[in-house]
Every structure is written in C-alpha cells, then in structure tokens.
Amino acid sequence: MYIAVSGNIGAGKTTLVEKLANQLGWIAEYEAVDQNPYLIDFYQDMRRWAFPLQICFLSHRFRQGLSLTSSAQKMVMDRTIYEDAEIFARNLFQSGYLEERDYQNYLFLYSTMVELVAKPVLLIYLKGNTSTLMQRVQQRNFKKKIKKKNNEELIPFDYLNNLNILYDEWIRNFKLCPVITVDIVRTDLKDEENFYELVEQINLLIN
C-alpha cells in the first residue's frame, strides 16, 4: 500500500515524502523516469513530440504503479500517475501542443491503465496559492545555487497559475481515496507540531 503526496511545483512534496517516509518507516518513492528518449526531440518540435513524450512518461508511471501494486512494502510516493494525465498532459493540450485526437487517445489509454494500478490508501494534497508557490520556487533556487540561473526561477506566474487551476479542479473531483488537503500558506510543515498533527491524521485514516 502507498500514500501519495501531490501538489504543484514548489509545494514541498519531495521534502514531505522524505519526512513522512522516515517518520512512518516506509519507503520513499520518487520520479519514475530516468530517461525519456523523446525529451530532446520535444524541445526541438513540441507539437510533433508532445504525444510520444507523454506516452513515455505515462508508461513509466504505469510500470511504477504496477510495482507498487505487487509490492508488499509500504511506500510514500512523490506525485502520481493521475497528475501526469490530469495536470501535465492536460496543460499541454490546453496550450495547443497536444492535438485533440492525440489527447483523447492518451486519455483512453490512461483510463485503461489506471484501472490496473493500485489506488493510494490516502492522498495528501499540498495546496498553495500561486504567489506562495512562486516564492517557494525562488527560495529553493536561491538555496540550490547550482548555477547562476536555475530553470525553475523562470517559471512564469501564468504558467504556474494554470497548473494550479488544473490541480484544484482535479482534486475537487478526486474520489479514489481519502484526501488530506494541507494549505501550505497556513500550515508550515517544517513546524514539528504541524507535521506531527498531520502524521496523527494519517494514522487515523490508514489504520
């Protein structure tokens, strides 16, 4: 069984996954794709390659989902197959990079795959307004200083906002398992009290 942690870029998913996995004694499970062979082609011609790119992301997520299904271990997962489809693929469609028929084809495949993948026992949704997410992404980059201009600090407000709208819509309609929504503006999970309160809530829901 697994708990999923979902949320937009900069919401703090990875940090929470790590903390929860440590606290619960579960395994932290991160991104499914090591190499997507379409990524470079995608940058050369997004309309041409958006569909195979998304199919490749989806198939890796599916494989990861199947391994979760068959695993006896308890895991905390950073992002889900649902977000691949409902947020990122949908955003490409809405931005005009995925054709209608390709998107429908993708959704058909996704809906078939998702039936075969174990549902999370609980989903934790880290909800933040776009300004807070922007701030967090910028802080994160300041801390990283990998190079002078890290890509994430360039995320346009409108782009992040569009993803946020898709996230809110998705979570409103999400019925596959119980959802704990954490408002990251009001609740700082770095605060131990808030974190242990969340852990208590989790334990109540999964036990």
Binding site: Q35, N36, L39, Y43, N151, L154
Partner: peptide, 14 residues
C-alpha cells in the same frame, strides 16, 4: 538530462 526535465516542468517552450 535532469535540467531538461526541470525545464519541461517549468514550461520552457520551443
């Protein structure tokens, strides 16, 4: 490659 993945998530476009 990881940088390219981040760029994808950040909305870079061709």
């Amino acid at each position: 490659y990881q940088d390219l993945l981040k760029m994808y998530e950040a909305g870079f476009h061709t």
